[in-house]
Nucleic acid binder design. Structure first.
Lengths: 237, 237
DNA sequence: CGAAAAATACATCTAAAGGTTTACATCTTT
DNA sequence: AAAGATGTAAACCTTTAGATGTATTTTTCG
């Protein structure tokens, strides 16, 4: 959106962590680094959100585990504000699901509280520099989840036990048009055949898909991976 | 699937790279490491596939850029074999799309040819050890693409300019049933109203969605985020 | 080649869908 | 109180969809 001209100026950092002791420690650590300027701290997620609105920090160091609010929700809200605020998650857990969801929501990094302070500083540098930073071990975790998701998706649609495989090429063409909401006559004119022929094909399709009408046939087609070409996939290969 | 009992035994590595000189150099590098055993090399993707079937290597070091076959397809085929063969991509390009797709297809790592040989060895160790390894710079690249995908998906479905918002609560109920392939009479009996009333509602729905028949209405509903509860999402938050 | 599958076509009939208009009772908002 | 949105219902009519049976011509494949 907006380009910052602060190649040398300090990055504004905001800290949100419900554990006050930890917050203070991190504050001290970061403040000792000359390149960062801690513009605010909060032990409460909601107050933290207000501080973000007020100070427009470059980076928010966000604890995931807070009583008032779910950390993921906080990320979501910050991203929704669209202020270019970059979220670096600081969490006690290396749960792959949590990492995945945080990154999916737009977090620019994820470090564990157990990690060395040097690593936190490095992550903060990278994130404030516009990069995404995940420690190698968490990257590994992330991909556990990511690739598993892809596999699950694949097995869902690759279940070739569906009746679609029984359709002939012509019947697939007809079904394709049905899936576009075309009438019998429309199909007939597009395939250059008579509408009675279309009815024959459609009836055969119903038989094979074990449905009673066009709407059910279309639903069956959509739910069983027909039309994959037309339906944009969320994550495509 | 199957647990290997080779904590100390050498990992079987297979090399596929169309550039013979590079292949030879990598072969020499890896062979010099005591923990790896190069069981085969090939400058041709198809022959490489046969070697995989024959030797069942633990790790395949795979070049992405080959004349005969697209590297991504090779990954896909290897994964389809389901032999537990782990693919480490060795590529000349740090294109975020390429990285993303390779990882999505199940690659367990991705290193650049320009990287230090020590990094290649390290990646190989990690991957043969069952982990996923992506160098920090490529992780960053990966997330560029990943998070962009998520954003695009979100803006697709969040476009609330669709006509669905014009529907009344009752009309939504009717549309919901239409989306299940229910007939007018079926809708009537389920909502305890007469079928003529259903027709009225359906006609109003058609008007509002600017379609001509139930199939088109259902398609509109599905394509515009109606029924989000029933349609499983690929990657959910 | 010859059998089987697929694609084509038509007739007939019934059921369902869809268009249009009118009407009335509620309920909310101005 | 008037206006507007909503839900309900019906009559009338036209079109489309769907079921069933029969039959001819291509294609495909053993």
């Amino acid at each position: 959106m907006r380009r910052e001209f602060k190649s040398k100026s300090k990055s504004k950092v905001l800290l949100i962590d419900d554990n006050y002791d930890h917050l203070a420690a991190v504050n001290e650590l970061i403040s000792s680094e000359s390149m960062f300027n801690v513009v605010g701290t909060s032990t409460n997620a909601n107050i933290g959100m207000n501080l973000i609105k007020k100070y427009h920090p470059d980076v928010v160091l966000l604890d995931m585990n807070m009583p008032e609010k779910n950390g993921l929700e906080v990320i979501q809200e910050i991203e929704k504000m669209n202020l270019g605020v970059r979220v670096l998650v600081l969490s006690g857990y290396d749960d792959s699901d949590l990492i995945f969801r945080a990154m999916k929501l737009g977090a620019k990094g994820y470090v564990l509280k157990t990690m060395a302070s040097a690593q936190l500083i490095y992550a903060l540098e990278e994130v404030s520099d516009g990069k995404v930073y995940l420690p190698a071990s968490l990257t590994s975790r992330f991909f556990e989840y990511f690739q598993q998701q892809v596999i699950e998706e694949k097995t869902e649609t690759t279940q070739e036990e569906n009746y679609l495989s029984f359709l002939t090429a012509r019947e697939e063409e007809v079904l394709d048009l049905l899936c576009q909401g075309v009438t019998y006559k429309g199909v007939a004119s597009q395939l250059f055949i008579s509408d009675t022929t279309v009815k024959t094909h459609v009836n055969n399709i119903f038989q094979k898909l074990q449905v009673n009408d066009r709407t059910q046939a279309v639903l069956y087609a959509i739910n069983n991976g027909f039309m994959k070409k037309r339906t944009k996939q969320l994550v495509r290969v």
